[in-house]
Design a protein around this nucleic acid. Structure first.
Lengths: 108, 108
DNA sequence: TTACCTTATAACTATGTAGTTATATATTGC
DNA sequence: GCAATATATAACTACATAGTTATAAGGTAA
């Protein structure tokens, strides 16, 4: 899946929140359900549930129901993919050369 | 500078926008000034200026005035640092063990 | 069925953000 | 000083988001 700027920005937005970063770090240890996570944060159960949904939409976690509980697990490869995308940003040389041909660059 | 969740979230927020990701990619080719970048985006000069300010606050770019122009350059090490932080999230095993001692974990 | 626990959703509030236009500031060169 | 260009800031609008409380829905077990 090619990560264009829109996709990458959406993925980064999903990570760009201290609560979700901590959730991801916790799931990196082991799968957890909502009711285990709630006491680790000063926020309500629905708030944690909504963070989870955000992470799931971004492909960062997957869920498995076990009886009453829904266990969430980290998609570590997806997280890694996002980090790698940051270090492999596209080469936009062509865009600048095009500007140059139009005389829109300041100094030669 | 230790990257706690707040710091990292702030840095990721600065990157979590398609326009800023493209700006960063362009500055990765070479330093640019605002008036060069504006024609590459469908937005106004003040909008580009504000994106730049956001990136500067996050430590991702630095500026150098040359005559009328202000040239912005990418702080590549800062960008790399953010990517690495994503792949080196803190180990929160202790938090989960603490929960376990309190009997707040569902299974086991 | 009923009671109970867990999770998700709805409706709302407060705040942040990305854009706009208008204007101020900085710099160059006449 | 004055005109022209580049950049930054101010004031505003529209929309996204992170939280809340209340409630619905899913699942277990008496």
């Amino acid at each position: 899946m090619p990560m264009n700027f829109e996709n990458l920005a959406d993925a980064l937005k999903a990570l760009a929140d201290p609560t979700r970063l901590k959730i991801v770090s916790l799931l990196n240890v082991r799968d957890c359900c909502i009711c285990e996570l709630v006491p680790l944060f000063g926020i309500s159960q629905p708030a944690v549930s909504k963070h989870m949904r955000r992470l799931k939409t971004a492909g960062l976690v997957h869920e498995t129901r076990k009886g009453m509980w829904v266990f969430y697990g980290l998609n570590a490869d997806r997280l890694a993919e996002i980090g790698v995308s940051l270090s492999r940003l596209p080469d936009l040389r062509a865009d600048l050369e095009h500007l140059q041909q139009q005389g829109l660059l300041v100094c030669e």
